[in-house]
């Protein structure tokens, strides 16, 4: 599996605050990757570093084998649709296409025109008068017509209403079916990207909590419910993600590739959202664990 983005120990500091720290991850090529995490997890910072808008404060990042801020940065090969999908309010739709044509050597004029026509955008309309959904579609058109190998989208649907969100993703998926490209899509909601993605990276507090093929993840994570049991007694092949206990009952979310044979357990599958939430709450617990030592001193 080749990678389109590889980062090691990547960190970004704004004044005294680390927006991203010690982030090491690999994004496989040819996939639609969902980069999911709560707000402030560092998703935006990561994508900004990947597209070269920001320079790393620590560690390194390679995109399509090059440094994004370097001399041979892969500018022509990476498309980017920024948060809130910025466009020039005073320029028309047609102006934006001209802008794209003038600023990108690999510009696909036919595709851009066809897309605009299919989306029903009036080329003479000023971008400032487009709806949020239309603006997002225009920004996506710019990102796609550049014919990138890798398309990065930073929370593109966060500001859209459900219908516009759906239309945007339909459109994006259609483009993925047509063009051979890798996509990274960030979102703080799993449900936004669940269907569109086939690979998931969960980022919490700059750390990759889990990364993998979505179907594999769903297949290998199980919820076990049964009489109260100490986690140490579980088989070694069952990696505990979360555990919760009452007086008599234990509920575990485990990752395992082998079937669970113990008849004491009631075994059920997880939805992707449950799976992501399990990993997020695990990180929250880890954070809480780090704190009591301080509180105990008081």
């Amino acid at each position: 599996m080749s990678t389109v983005i590889r980062s090691a120990g990547l960190g970004k500091k704004y004044r005294s605050r680390w927006a991203l720290s010690d982030c090491s991850l690999e994004v496989p090529s040819g996939r639609v990757v969902g980069l999911v995490g709560p707000n402030g997890a560092g998703k935006s910072t990561f994508l900004n570093l990947a597209v070269g808008m920001l320079a790393p404060s620590a560690g390194e990042i390679e995109v399509l084998g090059e440094r994004p801020t370097g001399r041979s940065a892969p500018r022509t090969r990476v498309g980017y649709v920024g948060q809130d999908t910025p466009t020039y309010a005073g320029l028309s739709v047609a102006d934006h296409l001209r802008l794209g044509a003038h600023l990108n050597p690999g510009w696909d004029e036919t595709q851009a025109r066809q897309r605009v026509a299919r989306l029903g955008l009036d080329p003479k309309q000023r971008a400032g008068r487009l709806s949020g959904g239309q603006r997002a579609q225009l920004a996506l058109t710019l990102g796609l017509a550049k014919r990138p190998e890798l398309l990065l989208l930073d929370e593109p649907v966060a500001a859209l209403d459900p219908l516009a969100r759906r239309e945007f993703l339909q459109d994006l998926m259609e483009a993925v079916a047509e063009q051979d490209l890798s996509v990274v899509l960030s979102s703080h909601l799993v449900s936004d990207v669940e269907r569109a993605c086939d690979f998931l990276i969960v980022l919490v507090d700059s750390r990759v909590q889990v990364a993998g093929d979505i179907e594999e993840l769903l297949g290998s994570h199980l919820r076990l419910t049964g009489p109260r049991r100490d986690p140490a007694t579980l088989p070694a092949a069952q990696e505990v993600v979360t555990a919760s206990h009452t007086d008599r009952q234990s509920t575990y979310v485990v990752r395992t590739d082998a079937p669970v044979l113990d008849p004491a357990w009631e075994v059920s599958r997880l939805t992707l959202e449950d799976l992501v939430l399990a990993y997020m709450s695990r990180q929250a617990l880890a954070r809480a664990d780090a704190r009591p030592s301080l509180e105990a001193l008081r």
Binding site: V32, Q170, D198
Partner: peptide, 13 residues
């Protein structure tokens, strides 16, 4: 492509 455009799901699916 038609299915993908209709359901907004990943083409690989």
């Amino acid at each position: 492509k038609e299915v993908v455009a209709h359901l907004a799901i990943n083409p690989n699916t």
